[in-house]
Design a protein around this nucleic acid. Sequence first.
DNA 1: GTATGTGAAGACCTTCACAGCG
DNA 2: CGCTGTGAAGGTCTTCACATAC
Lengths: 208, 208
Amino acid sequence: MNRSIPAATVSRLPIYLRSLNDLPSGQSTCSSEDLAEIAGVNSAQVRKDLSYLGSPGVRGVGYHVADLREVLRQALGLTQGYAVVIVGAGHLGTALGNYGGFEAWGFSVVAVLDADVEKVGTMVGGRAVEAMERLEEIVAAREVSIGIIATPMEAAQEIAERLTAAGVRSILNFAPTVLRVAPGIEVRRVDLSTELQILTFHLQASGA
Amino acid sequence: MNRSIPAATVSRLPIYLRSLNDLPSGQSTCSSEDLAEIAGVNSAQVRKDLSYLGSPGVRGVGYHVADLREVLRQALGLTQGYAVVIVGAGHLGTALGNYGGFEAWGFSVVAVLDADVEKVGTMVGGRAVEAMERLEEIVAAREVSIGIIATPMEAAQEIAERLTAAGVRSILNFAPTVLRVAPGIEVRRVDLSTELQILTFHLQASGA
DNA sequence: GTATGTGAAGACCTTCACAGCG
DNA sequence: CGCTGTGAAGGTCTTCACATAC
């Protein structure tokens, strides 16, 4: 079914899906131009991206909003729920654990882990923090498919190895380090200081 | 001095800078191969990227670590400090405010703002949360160059407009929305649910 | 000898412009 | 007629392969 959708397109699909919510309510159909405006991209880009999902539009009319939402949800695999484990209950892990948005998109945080025995048992987002040594057991028993690493840099690589050995195939890494993982394991890196440094590059390039 | 460095290169420079810290200590010189390994990219990529910064290497030898670090810091504009304001003192804004890494890279969080009067005056990362209406005054008085938006989605666009009107030229946006800003304003988006959805795309594409 | 710096080739991505279809 | 879907063109990024310099 997937005729190899380009990576750049995949990274925009979530934006299109969210953009549908920003349409004037009651609008049952939308043009590539409407979506382009909201998503901040070129309208030809929108049409080409969506064309990879079959041909969800109607010429002369546009895209039927409800249909398009369903096609996007299907493509992104959002029709099933995914169990997520958060590793690290520091400031960031706590913020993530308290974030209400996971459930809205069908994700379910099934555990928050921390290596610090002082933190084990404390509550984060309504769940008790569990001990790091239970990682493998929890991943297996709760069928975790996504691991979120919110540990200090030093611990990140080892946690990634334990997660993947236990069966996790997707990792979202907030630790400021590049993880080395086996082929087939998908890692996304979110790094605050990298982002800030890209901003300062432009500040100084434009003469600040 | 900047002979228009490609965007893709700019986004890797922070990784190279950090990679220097991961070299075996005492190693005063390193090859593009060494850096490539740590940064997780091709070594030709490393050489081409670094060649945009002049020619910081020595043929037959490699890159002198201390020199390269300095060249990277210069290119990224990290030789001067930057004042940062965090807008929104919810879970995420609080985590950011408590994050110790800003100072290490030369950033200085000069204010944390929130629209909720209940939150004003509470402490975040050793600073008292200030009222949102003081945004313009604070940006001007404390010479803020970077704004971090950690508000709910609905407030983000207005905050972006107020920040830029007050003189901020760089924004790091954690709110799940695409900001519309004037030309010349640099925005980086960090969106948890987008990242998770890209992961689920691959999970389902590989048949999970 | 050794590792950088770089033209050339190739892969990938974006944009245009218009054919095609409702 | 209007808007999608798409070949073709143009741009950007990555990788190769080797000349170049120490």
